[in-house]
Design a protein around this nucleic acid. Structure first.
Lengths: 208, 208
DNA sequence: ACGGTTCGATCGATCGATCGATAGACTCGA
DNA sequence: TCGAGTCTATCGATCGATCGATCGAACCGT
């Protein structure tokens, strides 16, 4: 791992655990194994570091969502979005926690950029829900409320998921798909096929 | 409004908007219309202020949930919990944002106390869900996952609700009840009666 | 000897918290 | 009624610590 990656990783862990304002430059330095001065050889300001973390996370999410948006079948498409959101919020837990909680720490200019990326992502959900409603596969009078409720429900997993829990991530994802389709009064969806597909997509977009 | 209440209100607004670590003593003082020294005549440490806000919010929530727990009918009981959670997270938006986001700012001792209150509250949900499953009114293989998903879904409203939105709060609550029962594959529940009941309960426990 | 890395020392600003002082309101014995 | 003593509320000044950030000098592989 390069030094820059170590800095990034340290920032990710500390921002997720203590928040942006709760993390000092010296904390970052200790965690990355550098002096606080050397830190500045690899990054700009502390805020630049935060923005870079958020930008990368949201950009990848959007890339994945754009691929999923090609799916024709309404249930499949929503199920894939749910799987993507739940799996990334579980596995890329630190990134998503930072994205979801530290938006307010951004100054106006970067905030605008990051908000645009987030809105772009939410639009994929809105389209998927409205598409399903138009096809009479989903039934809700308030697709906007449904979108917000779905996103909060699926994203919340980043607050509690642990790989050591009693259920496998696949099982959890299947439950979420079931609950999401239930929320929209849609026919249930077998699911495991969808989970496998999305897992492949994630492996492609979040390489290691 | 007493000075102490003004301090509390200023802290509530600033902690919710900028976070605990993002709020300085001098910010609090300006917002409360006092000098930073006078602030300490009305409060202990900054953390004491945070703990007091969290404790009051969670204590009230538990008092309301305990009353709802007396409800026999499973659908009614869950619908009431949903209504309570959604309405408080919408109306007492600042309090609930602070409770949900600033837990990590607490030092170990107060955190223990606050976590206990939160666990107490979540137990009411767990019991309501398991009770419904035992009566074959709800259908899920993972009541624990359902509880977490429901709480995140219902609590997320504190991130976006505004009284100026297109839907009335009552309508939103009805949608949430519908979605929650859908998630558990339960029979739908008329609902408005439940909303009115819970609104009365809230008015009793959060007086103004 | 050169360029990419590293760091100790330090900058001015701000942090949470405390100090002593002061002004006013109330209490109570003379 | 007066004055001494007490209590509450308030603030300017300031404490030591830490904040984010910068500097010049030293290090090191080539």
């Amino acid at each position: 791992m390069t030094t820059e990656q170590r800095v990034r990783q340290a920032a990710l862990e500390l921002f997720a655990a203590r928040g942006f304002h709760g993390t000092g430059i010296r904390d970052l330095a200790v965690s990355a194994g550098l002096s606080s001065a050397t830190l500045y050889h690899y990054m700009g300001t502390k805020e630049d570091l935060l923005v870079a973390i958020m930008r990368e996370s949201l950009t990848r999410l959007n890339r994945a969502a754009a691929r999923i948006a090609e799916t024709e079948d309404a249930q499949d498409r929503l199920a894939k979005l749910v799987a993507l959101h739940v799996m990334t919020h579980a596995v890329q837990q630190l990134e998503t926690r930072v994205v979801d909680n530290e938006m307010r720490a951004l100054s106006p200019q970067p905030r605008k950029e990051i908000l645009k990326l987030r809105d772009e992502y939410e639009a994929f959900w809105q389209q998927a829900i409205e598409n399903g409603c138009a096809q009479r596969r989903f039934h809700t009078n308030a697709p906007g409320v449904a979108r917000l409720a779905l996103l909060e429900m699926c994203g919340g997993i980043s607050r509690w998921y642990s790989p050591d829990g009693p259920l496998s991530l696949d099982d959890i994802v299947l439950h979420y798909i079931d609950m999401a389709l239930g929320m929209l009064h849609a026919q249930p969806e077998p699911g495991q096929r969808v989970v496998n597909e999305v897992a492949g997509l994630i492996a492609e977009i979040w390489p290691q």
